[in-house]
Write a protein that binds this DNA or RNA. Structure first.
Lengths: 110, 110
DNA sequence: ACAGTAACCTTGTATAGCAAGACTTGCAAT
DNA sequence: ATTGCAAGTCTTGCTATACAAGGTTACTGT
């Protein structure tokens, strides 16, 4: 199917803000985010997520924290920063506006 | 502004199908498409469009035709193919589904 | 000891949009 | 005629992103 290729390209630039939206409810760790995003079909593998989280860390959108208290391998929990919250708001505007344009085009092509 | 960077990434994978949607109403030439897409804020410059049209031509989504009949420099008119129409339909499904997921996340983050 | 698994991360690849500009053609002033 | 302008097509070099595949670390169960 070519649906995969279509979806892959659509995800570009969306994923970053989906992560921010998920974190706006409270901190989460990597695999937890990956599972959530996978079930929503917003990523195809962890290979997208970890490099993304590294970028977001560098850009100050999220703040990581190691937690070794539990059992098993230590988890790295991510929390959204103020800057991240601002960016999420900005994204919501751009997404709404661009989405409306695309919807209009698709609507008109039937 | 960082809105530009956000929009740039969002456009990836969308533009191709916006072109198909526009062509579903009848053939258009390059600059005509560029102007239309620019006014809808779906491209930032022609630099995105011509390489895209070349790809779409190679993939059999559009069929070009030179027209020197009018005044001025010859224009290359593009028409959508059957394959292009199919792809547009597939895209509409993926777009709707992915868009709903993103909307749900944004909705939940307020 | 050994396999399994949860969790983290890295490497290499393909692709898409963009800015800037080159090239060509016709037309309109001077 | 010649210069300049505008419309139109296309190219080059750049950056950023998602992905597949694989590798590492820590713990648990048998």
């Amino acid at each position: 199917m070519s649906e995969d290729r279509i979806a892959t390209n659509l995800r570009k630039g969306v994923l970053e803000y989906c992560v921010l939206a998920l974190l706006s409810h409270g901190e989460k760790y990597g695999l937890e985010l990956a599972d959530d995003l996978t079930s929503r079909e917003l990523i195809a593998s962890e290979g997208s997520l970890y490099p993304l989280l590294a970028r977001m860390r560098e850009n100050g959108l999220v703040e990581p924290r190691w937690d070794s208290s539990g059992t098993g391998r230590p988890r790295r929990y991510y929390a959204i920063t103020d800057h991240g919250t601002e960016q999420l708001t900005t994204f919501a505007k751009v997404w709404t506006s661009l989405g409306a344009q695309v919807d209009a085009l698709l609507e008109g092509s039937r």
